Simulated assay, not measured.
Amino acid sequence: MEQQPVTMSDVARAAGVSVTTVSYVLSGKRPVAPATTEAVQAAVARLGFRLNTVAQSLRTGRSSTAALIIPDIANPFYAELARGLQDALRRERLHVVICNTNADRAEELSYLDDVVRRRLDGVVITPQWLVTDDLDPLRAAGIPVVVSADTELSDLDVVRADSREAIDQAVAHLAERGHRRLGMVAGPTGTPNGDPRLALYRAAARRHGLALPADLVVRGKHTREAGAAALRRMMSRAQPPTAVVCVNDRSAIGVLEAAEDTGLRIPSDLALIGHDDIEVASLTRPRLSTIRYPAYEVGSTCGRLLLERLDGRVDPVEVALRTRFVPREST
Rank of each mutant, 00 (worst) to 15 (best):
Q3K: 09
T7I: 13
S9I: 11
G16T: 09
V17K: 01
V17F: 04
S18K: 10
L26G: 07
P31R: 08
P34M: 03
A35P: 14
E38A: 04
A39Y: 07
V40M: 10
Q41K: 12
V44M: 10
A45K: 11
R46W: 08
G48S: 09
R50L: 07
Q56V: 11
G61E: 05
S63H: 03
A67Y: 12
I70D: 00
P71C: 05
P71V: 01
P76L: 11
Y78M: 04
A79H: 15
L81C: 12
A82I: 00
R83Y: 06
R83V: 03
G84Q: 03
Q86V: 01
R90A: 14
R91I: 08
E92S: 13
L94N: 00
H95Q: 12
V96S: 01
C99Q: 12
R105Y: 15
E107H: 14
E108T: 07
Y111E: 12
D113S: 13
D114V: 15
V115G: 01
V116K: 10
R117C: 12
R119L: 09
D121V: 00
I125T: 11
I125S: 00
P127I: 06
Q128L: 10
D136A: 05
P137C: 06
A140V: 03
A140W: 01
S163L: 02
S163W: 02
A166N: 05
D168L: 00
Q169T: 05
Q169Y: 07
A170Y: 06
A170V: 03
A170G: 03
A172V: 02
A175H: 04
A175K: 00
G178C: 08
T191V: 08
P192K: 07
L198Q: 14
L200M: 09
A204S: 13
A205E: 07
A205S: 14
A205M: 11
H208W: 08
H208L: 02
G209W: 02
L212C: 09
A214E: 14
A214Y: 10
V217M: 11
G220V: 06
K221L: 08
H222R: 12
H222D: 15
T223H: 10
A228L: 11
A229T: 14
S236Y: 08
P241F: 05
T242F: 03
A243K: 00
D249L: 06
I253M: 11
E257C: 05
E260S: 11
D261R: 07
D261G: 04
G263W: 13
L264I: 02
R265Y: 02
A271K: 06
I273R: 05
G274L: 02
E279P: 02
R285E: 13
T290D: 06
I291V: 13
R292M: 09
A295H: 09
E297R: 12
V298N: 10
T301Y: 02
C302E: 01
R304D: 09
L305C: 06
L307A: 15
E308Q: 15
R309D: 03
R309T: 02
D311Y: 01
E318Q: 09
L321F: 10
L321V: 09
R322N: 13
R322W: 07
T323S: 14
V326I: 10
P327G: 07
P327H: 08
T331N: 05
